[in-house]
């Protein structure tokens, strides 16, 4: 009896967490941008990293073509891979979005690289990021800034942790 209850509770918590997420969608588009966030940048850093989740709810594939932000000269999409003990950043000119699938940008995986920052990203601030998709068009999101080196957005920390622990048991 205890186990199913725990499971239902976990699902309920996950749903609540999902609902709390700052989901930002363009009305015309089938691409949903969830949980945008960025890391505060260390002193004098010329680059920053932003992360988010893209969900293509449409029937057709879409593509993330590019992005702009007032806080940086250039925005690039990168994946970090580790091969033979080497950490390598690879630029992805276009990010393919498969129908009914999630594409997650997360530390250690894919990141949105903000190149030549015009100002440091400070914890607690927000900035705007405009994403351009091949079909969904332009989607503007507001990106909150978490700590330097944070592994997740500030407001998600306890919930994500709880979920991770449950999974490990």
């Amino acid at each position: 009896m205890k186990r199913p209850f725990k499971l239902i509770l976990s699902i309920a918590l996950a749903l609540i967490a999902g609902a709390q997420v700052n989901a930002q969608t363009s009305s015309a588009s089938s691409v949903v941008v969830e949980r945008p966030w960025a890391r505060a940048t260390p002193g004098g850093a010329k680059t920053g990293a932003a992360y988010l989740i893209l969900i293509n709810n449409g029937e057709a594939p879409d593509q993330l073509l590019g992005a702009t932000t007032p806080v940086a000269d250039k925005v690039q999409f990168h994946s970090t891979t580790e091969e033979n003990g080497m950490s390598r950043m690879r630029e992805m000119p276009i990010v393919d979005l498969v129908p009914h699938a999630k594409t997650t940008f997360d530390p250690g995986g894919m990141h949105i690289m903000l190149v030549d920052l015009k100002q440091p990203l400070k914890e607690g601030q927000t900035f705007s990021l405009s994403l351009t998709f091949a079909k969904a068009g332009k989607v503007d999101v507001t990106v909150p800034v978490a700590k330097v080196g944070a592994m997740r957005p500030s407001d998600m920390a306890p919930m994500m942790h709880h979920h991770d622990d449950t999974m490990k048991e």
Binding site: P42, G108, G149
Partner: peptide, 11 residues
């Protein structure tokens, strides 16, 4: 320092 993802994580 130009590295936005792996290096801040490591430090």
């Amino acid at each position: 320092t130009f590295c936005p993802d792996a290096c801040p994580t490591a430090l």
